[in-house]
């Protein structure tokens, strides 16, 4: 390499430095970034401000507005909102017609959560323990896809499945069991005028819709259970059932709780499904929708919403204590 070749290389190097240097000195972007470098507090404020305005002022502010509504009441004769502070709206929640709605919704949410946990476990366990790395990703996508296809579309599918002329009756008819459904829907609490108009169908569709929300966190929790734990348990003489109950289940608990946050919360606030399935008995979300949209009783709708919120906040704080947030 001749000596005449060396300088250009150096010059190129210098040029590069010179370019970056120019960019550093000039331009508004550079000025701003220098300002933020010198004032880290200003940088933090600038980063935080938009989201804080949105979440605190707009979102929490709106919830605050709703809270005010819940302490107003609907004047009985005029049907207008009386803007004097009162607890009468909350008192009316204790009327059987209203408290029944809350209890019915809670029962449904609990039943759906339990059903989701039971259904989620085998698939989650298979994914976490036996699937190869690639297979697990494929299964993960397969669980995720229904979650990201429209919720309404999947509910629509169930109306077509559970209809009298639909595939369920057809399939059971083929094996001569279609009478089972008709017997089932005459059952006292869960039954209804038809399969679609029964609580059974509402329960099935809720369970179906929220199932992926349970599978994913349970799988994530199970994935973290070291295989050696299970081996140690069996080496110490535990039968599979005992290992499951004493080792797997406790370690999967944060995942189950994390999943249940979704299954519970989503059931609690849904008002679309109870209009598509089930009897004329109301659920919490449906009652909120009717009170605000049809009756115009925003205070009562607000009070119901705060019942749902209170339930979820209690639930979330229990979940947090149980370490479920690490599984989220």
């Amino acid at each position: 390499m001749g000596p005449d070749r060396a300088p250009p290389l150096l010059v190129v190097g210098y040029e590069h430095v010179a370019v970056t240097d120019r960019a550093r000195r000039g331009g508004p972007m550079a000025a701003i970034s220098t300002f933020f470098y010198r004032h880290p507090w200003a940088k933090l404020a600038a980063l935080l401000l938009p989201a804080v305005l949105w979440l605190i002022v707009l979102y929490l502010g709106s919830i605050g507005g709703l809270l005010i509504y819940s302490f107003w009441s609907l004047a009985e004769f005029t049907g207008l909102i009386d803007r004097t502070l009162t607890l009468s709206t909350y008192q009316s929640l204790l009327e059987p017609a209203n408290s029944d709605i809350v209890l019915r919704t809670l029962a449904m949410a609990a039943a759906v959560t339990i059903a989701c946990s039971i259904l989620a476990f085998p698939l989650a366990y298979y994914m976490a323990r036996y699937a190869t790395r690639r297979g697990r990703f494929v299964l993960y996508l397969a669980v995720l896809m229904p979650l990201w296809s429209s919720y309404l579309v999947r509910a629509l599918a169930w109306r077509q499945i559970l209809a009298r002329e639909g595939v369920l009756y057809w399939a059971l008819g083929k094996v001569g069991l279609d009478g089972v459904i008709d017997t089932l829907i005459t059952a006292p609490v869960v039954g209804g005028a038809s399969l679609i108009a029964s609580k059974i169908s509402l329960f099935i569709v809720f369970t179906y819709l929220w199932l992926p929300f349970m599978i994913l966190p349970v799988e994530a929790a199970l994935e973290r259970v070291p295989g050696s734990f299970l081996e140690a348990s069996s080496d110490l003489g535990a039968r599979p059932w005992l290992t499951f109950r004493r080792i797997v289940l406790p370690l999967a608990k944060p995942g189950l709780i994390a999943g249940s946050i979704f299954t519970f919360s989503l059931t609690l606030g849904d008002f679309i499904l109870p209009t598509m399935f089930g009897s004329s008995e109301f659920y919490l979300g449906q009652q909120v929708f009717t009170q605000i949209g049809v009756v115009g009783n925003t205070p009562l709708a607000a009070a119901f919403t705060f019942v749902a919120m209170a339930i979820m906040i209690v639930y979330l704080s229990i979940a947090r204590r149980a370490g479920a947030f690490e599984s989220l």
Binding site: Y59, L66, G269, G285, V288, T305
Partner: peptide, 19 residues
């Protein structure tokens, strides 16, 4: 997303449109 969607919906509606 942790609270039921209905909370966001009714809070925004009653506050933005109502108040």
């Amino acid at each position: 997303i942790a609270l039921p969607g209905i909370v966001t919906g009714i809070a925004l509606r009653s506050t933005l449109s109502g108040l």
